[in-house]
């Protein structure tokens, strides 16, 4: 127990130091921007990882919540001039409420049906963004999202925004950790290992799945809020099916290793397009291959799979060494 706590403290400290180091040490706006995007994607991956990695429930429409967060704040603060921070509260409440309404029937489904149900939900929301053009700006997008400000601090500069995003990520990481190490987290993981047994042991699996669905929707909405006020222009493409697939890919890479897996998945998928020349052309092929290959050989996720192989070989070495 105590060992665990110590380990978590060191992890958190390292994380904080790295954030501070990157934020203060990097001057290049382009790099800061990329690292901010990594933070936003990490939030998305963290939320979906709770649902997919830990509770074992697939969602192919999670970009919808990302979009709901972004469009809610855009409309409220852009069109109606409400303070963005009040809009944030509305965005999160809205996403959580929709997650509740949609999750109630959808999370009763399992396997293929759940995949289809969430996919259909994501598509409907995206069509809404596109077609409700008087409010959302339609397929040409929404222009005129205001900058974030908190009293005297303006988040105009890349550096301030970077710190804002990563502080939110840190809070989200701590929240996920607390949930996972609690009674609720244990029950969640038990659903992943065997839903029938979990039910028979007395876990209200449907309610629990619903709760975690709402939690991940909230994280998605926060990510959408941060995204909208960062790029200040949003369009339906940013929240379409491909984005949902991208989120799933991040989780598949990060897997159930730990909340850090989500960070790894998000970093990889944000950096790849920047590093690989002509990535946009091959983006779909690469995502598709990652999804297929990882799921075929390491269904518990890439990071977890690699860790397992490493631990296995270390055990074997020990046995042979002695």
């Amino acid at each position: 127990m105590d060992d665990n706590k110590k380990k978590q403290w060191t992890e958190n400290t390292i994380f904080l130091v790295v954030i501070l180091g990157c934020g203060l040490g990097v001057d290049n706006t382009y790099y800061l921007q990329i690292m901010t995007f990594i933070g936003i994607n990490t939030l998305l991956a963290l939320g979906l990882n709770m649902l997919m990695g830990y509770a074992g429930q697939v969602s192919l429409g999670h970009a919808a919540f990302y979009g709901i967060g972004a469009y809610t704040t855009a409309i409220l603060s852009g069109t109606y001039g409400i303070s963005p921070w009040a809009a944030l509260v509305c965005a999160v409440s809205c996403a959580v409420f929709i997650a509740f309404v949609v999750g109630l029937p959808t999370l009763k489904l399992s396997g293929y049906y759940l995949g289809m149900g969430t996919l259909g939900f994501g598509m409907i929301v995206n069509i809404l963004f596109r077609e409700w053009s008087t409010v959302t700006g339609g397929s040409s997008g929404f222009v005129g999202i205001p900058m974030l400000e908190a009293g005297p601090v303006s988040f105009m500069s890349g550096r301030n925004y970077f710190f804002l995003v990563w502080m939110v990520v840190l809070v989200a990481v701590l929240l996920c950790r607390r949930i996972l190490s609690s009674r609720m987290g244990r029950a969640l993981r038990s659903i992943h290992d065997g839903e029938n047994a979990s039910l028979a042991v007395g876990v209200n699996t449907h309610f629990l799945k619903l709760q975690i669905f709402m939690f991940s929707a909230a994280l998605g909405a926060v990510a959408g809020f941060l995204y909208a006020h960062f790029v200040m222009f949003i369009s339906p493409e940013s929240f379409g099916f491909m984005v949902s697939v991208k989120m799933v890919t991040m989780v598949v890479i990060g897997g159930m290793a730990s909340v850090w897996g989500a960070l790894l998945g998000a970093s990889l998928l944000t950096l790849l397009p920047e590093v690989l020349h002509g990535f946009a052309e091959y983006e779909m092929i690469i995502f598709g291959l990652i999804l297929m290959v990882v799921m075929i050989f390491m269904p518990q996720g890439l990071t977890r799979g690699l860790l397992d192989i490493y631990e296995h070989s270390r055990k074997r070495d020990k046995r042979h060494g002695n």
């Binding site: 799933v248 092929i285 995502f287 598709g288 990652i290 297929m292």
Partner: peptide
């Protein structure tokens, strides 16, 4: 997830 991956792959 495998079939979704295949779908994205084929499209690419």
């Amino acid at each position: 997830i495998i079939t979704v991956g295949a779908s994205i792959f084929l499209r690419g």
